[in-house]
Design a protein around this nucleic acid. Sequence first.
RNA 1: AUACCGUGUGAUCUC
Length: 339
Amino acid sequence: HLGRVDFAFSLLGQHLKLGIPLKVIHFNILINGLIQNDRLDHAKVLLDKIVKLGFQPNIWTYTSLINGLSNADKLGEAVALLKKTEELGLRPDVVTYNAIIKGQCRVGDFEGARRLFREMQGNNNCRPDVTTYSTLISGLCKVGLFSHAHELFSEMKGQGILPDAIAYNTLIRATCMSGDWGKVTDLVAEMVESNIPIKVDTYGTLVDMYSKHGMLDQARDIIRFMIERGVTPDIITFTALLDGYCSCGRMGEASKLMELMAEKGCEPNVVSFNSLIKGYCKAQDPDGALSVFQKMVDEGPTPDVITFNSLVDGLCKNNRFSVALQFMNSMEAHGLTPN
RNA sequence: AUACCGUGUGAUCUC
């Protein structure tokens, strides 16, 4: 998780040298670490090696790999590996299927997702669970199929599966995107009735959705409300509102919010600063955007590709083409490549 | 017996 996979490998080597017995879960952790660090090919090689060493990979091992393939949009390979686990006599479980379904939804393969979903329904070993439904609902929401999302949510409840906070958050987002604010209120009430505590991620969803609809007073009120209720807004929640102000070029309110964040001990991150750059450009104050950039270089957070994209885009929209080009050309000096 | 490894939700660019 710290990106120190090589160190993890050397620890494993020391265990081997000392004759400490290793189990498959130790390899599972390594394989998963490689995948989290975008080294899918190394993970595949490691799997082959551990088989040759005489270890028996279990379904967790394969599910890690399948998840990595799925996240890399290699869904054909992921499904092939799923079939292979069955041939090996392993039982893919609900986690295995959910990992693939998420990828299929992301690339828009709802046919494939539906096929696996049906397969799960016919298999006692891996019935769809609340995660399966949330994955599908989120996928449908991302392509704007809100009514399908609602239907699936009802279907889930009909199956006797109790929605958890994440399932509600997912559906709340879908409901906000269709602009049905009354229904949003109902869903939050339903969470309360079901004894599901409303936490920072639910509030954050509401703040973001109100902000994206230009309902900035409502978004601000949600933040006030959560503070009253003793829930501390996090950087994601604050930045959602900040971006609302920036998207409208309301930089006075954006600055006030930055002050409130400082007061609450919430450090703005690169996302917050990128949003400010966009905002100053939107407010036709490219010099303001340049000062934000300069502050990032001097004091952090370190600019990323999106910082430059926002700045270049914003400068162009203010007819500052040659400065925009200079910034684009300076990316390499900051260790970045234009995308 | 318990605990440790794999899946789902919220923020920034490309109008």
